[in-house]
Design a protein around this nucleic acid. Structure first.
Lengths: 248, 248
DNA sequence: CGCAGGATTGATTGCATTCAACGACCGTGG
DNA sequence: CCACGGTCGTTGAATGCAATCAATCCTGCG
């Protein structure tokens, strides 16, 4: 019998904060509704008050904003295990969009129910707080990445981050290679570049012997070199040391 | 008799989440130690494990990162009422620095004590979670600002944000004018620009009749125009509506 | 097969950087 | 009181990285 999809939430919360049996049970008994969304589908839209929040269980989604001149900026990437927009009752509707980059499996959980089970359960709140703070740390690193690094460094940094984060969610089969589920235009929207320049910069990394590309896969030929090229130090991801070591 | 400095924390938490008398009392009885730090002093340094966390009560501080080529990126601004690095026990040491931009008054609170009083107090945890999520929302807006807007728009956006945030903390006496406690180089490090270009862009905004500058003060001549120039929509700050209205 | 979205390449443009010098302001010390 | 040094702000000229515009090549897919 397959594990229930909500188990993914238990796993991702337990990475950084301890939960007891009651907490786990509370999560697993949350009412929910598993849905498959196709590439491009919106999970949330800016300004809309969500009556349910999403637990991403398979696939990749991005969070993005549209600026005045029509440009788009992707401000975050969601991998399986991440919980989206559960804060609605606390801070109101979110002001950005979440859209599936691949086919996505997600559990739709009524926020009211979610609120009810977390409200009086300190260890769950602490786990959510920990998740939120790690996410914030990633946002800060992205600010530095976009604000102060050149295109080559930015891209190398992103590749390192994705490689590690995917590895943590158990998405990668072979080590050193990972799935890059984005078009070059979407990568550009993550990095604050244009698709054309992303293309050239990918070729640059490839010419430097750091990576090789095949379809939508990236093979990392020189993990250490890519980290250096990307000024990548994984501390900001706040991964448990145990896992970090095995990545090296 | 002056209000105790910790009252600032109660106030800032209550902006978005309700606290009961016991919560307030718990905060106010936190052990702490008020300190005055001079401009440029570090409140925290990357990689150092903090045994105490800071509540900023007066002044402005910035959070910044240094990238490989020596460039600096300011990834966040802290105004009075913000609580820094209380998460140490949960996610480990932070990986960026916090430095005073002005003379700063801050309360140093032992993290152990802070942990102890919040650990079993759901409403406090929820308030902290709300704060963290608003902060994350600001980070996302900064990513979009730096990644996809040109210098003029970026700068106008920052000015709008600072004007509103300062107003919320009750820092501004006269409406439409606020203190900009940063050198142009520091502004550049916020926006991912150079000091030279910030200078020219400030002049551009001034020439456009949107602002006027005097020493380290900015007078907003055309609030609506500045918002438009900066593609600024304050939703991401998640201010209570009541306060937002009075700002207009 | 033909279509459509994505990737690639080339040529050109432009915004922001860099380098450099000068000016204004301010606190300090002679 | 004024000379001095240092930081910050301002301006000009030249450079460069990435954007833009445009065309072509792939490749998966109906």
């Amino acid at each position: 019998m397959p594990k229930p999809v909500l188990h993914r939430l238990v796993e991702s919360l337990e990475v950084r904060a301890p939960l007891d049996a009651a907490d786990r049970a509370a999560i697993l008994s949350l009412p929910h509704d598993v849905r498959i969304l196709r590439t491009g589908a919106f999970l949330t839209r800016a300004g809309q008050n969500q009556s349910c929040c999403w637990l991403l269980t398979e696939g990749v989604a991005c969070r993005h904003k549209i600026v005045a001149d029509g440009g788009r900026q992707i401000v975050g990437l969601h991998l399986p295990g991440s919980l989206l927009d559960f804060q609605a009752p606390v801070v109101g509707s979110s002001d950005d969009n979440v859209q599936a980059l691949t086919v996505v499996e997600a559990a739709c959980i009524p926020v009211a129910a979610f609120e009810a089970t977390t409200a009086a359960r300190p260890s769950l709140l602490r786990a959510l707080l920990a998740e939120a703070m790690v996410e914030a740390s990633i946002f800060r690193e992205w600010i530095a990445n976009i604000g102060r690094r050149d295109a080559r460094t930015r891209l190398a940094h992103l590749l390192c981050e994705l490689a590690l984060r995917q590895q943590m969610t158990g998405l990668t089969r072979e080590a050193g290679s990972f799935h890059l589920p984005m078009t070059q235009e979407q990568i550009a929207d993550v990095l604050g570049l244009t698709a054309v320049h992303v293309n050239r910069t990918l070729q640059l990394l490839e010419a430097g012997g750091l990576i090789r590309r095949a379809k939508r896969r990236v093979l990392i030929l020189d993990w250490l070199g890519l980290q250096q090229a990307g000024d990548f130090r994984p501390a900001y991801l706040h991964l448990p040391e145990r896992r970090l070591e095995s990545a090296a």
